[in-house]
């Protein structure tokens, strides 16, 4: 097997390492990162300190004496799952609707693309805020809302690709050989239309993680005691003057994740797609 080049391997390794940390660190930590520690001696310890019980706190502790490193890794679970799931599901919906729109054309195409344009005209965060506030906050709501507000860009990309591919000779060839339209779309058109969608979905992981953190920061996303990067940052906000590490540490984990997914997306773009990928994601 050919080894992947460095531009793919380095961000991939970072993400795998983070995922492993997210699985292992909360399991291995001495205290449950969700429950209060010994508040009197453990609260607001700065990074790189050892407390009186002999426990070492790499990133310090929060106002309840909980270890921030263990909590950040626990939060990574939910943030990574929401980011990947939100982006993949939105991409899947976008691919389906975009392919349908480009393949069928006509009224359906106009309706779908009209809806996509209208939704794209509202900044995604505002749309997200409105939806997240109107329905009950929670993990499922966040994923549903990320999908509902995230399919449009992928749909537009796939539709444009399908429109270009459907007139190509190999498609006409397949039709002349008697292949049914569904088979042509599935076997001949879609595989050729997916490059830019895959890139957009990879870059979308970072976008979804950022948006989730924004919603959770506002209390509209993942709810405590379940930690997520966003609600941990919100948690540290009141202590920003006294103990800035409480808010800043989870943000560093988030930044590393988003940077890795961005470099991975960039590397994939160099291979799979031209300049057709939508620039400038919506962000938090």
């Amino acid at each position: 097997m050919r080894l992947p080049r460095r531009d793919v391997a380095v961000p991939m390794a970072l993400l795998v390492l983070l995922a492993l940390g997210a699985i292992a660190v909360p399991l291995l930590s001495a205290d449950d990162p969700r429950t209060m520690g010994d508040v009197v001696v453990q609260r607001f310890l700065p990074p790189f300190t050892t407390d009186q019980h002999g426990a070492f706190h790499l990133l310090g502790t929060d106002r309840f004496g909980r270890d921030i490193f263990a909590r950040t890794m626990l939060a990574a679970r939910i943030s990574l799952v929401i980011g990947v799931l939100g982006s993949l599901l939105a991409g899947a919906v976008g691919i389906a609707l975009g392919a349908l729109s480009g393949w069928r054309g006509g009224v359906l195409d106009r309706l779908l693309m009209g809806a996509a344009d209208a939704l794209l005209a509202i900044p995604r965060l505002i749309l997200l805020l409105v939806c997240a506030a109107l329905w009950r906050p929670g993990t499922l709501t966040v994923v549903a809302v990320l999908v509902a507000t995230g399919w449009m860009a992928v749909a537009r990309l796939v539709r444009a690709e399908v429109l270009g591919i459907r007139t190509r000779p190999f498609v006409e060839g397949a039709a002349a050989l008697g292949a049914r339209p569904a088979r042509i779309l599935w076997r001949h058109v879609l595989p050729n239309a997916l490059g830019s969608a895959i890139v957009a979905m990879t870059l979308g992981v970072g976008g979804a993680i950022l948006l989730e953190s924004g919603l959770s920061f506002l209390g509209l996303g993942v709810q405590p005691p379940q930690p997520s990067w966003g609600n941990m940052i919100a948690d540290g906000r009141d202590a920003i003057v006294l103990a800035p590490w409480v808010a800043l540490a989870p943000g560093l984990a988030l930044i590393v994740t988003v940077v890795a997914s961005t470099f991975l997306g960039d590397a994939l773009r160099d291979r799979l797609a031209g300049e057709s990928v939508a620039p400038l994601r919506d962000r938090a």
Partner: peptide
């Protein structure tokens, strides 16, 4: 890429800190 990856509220809090 790093600055682009940072949430705006995190950057704001970092500046305040």
């Amino acid at each position: 890429t790093t600055v682009y990856a940072a949430p705006s509220f995190w950057l704001a809090l970092a500046l305040i800190a």
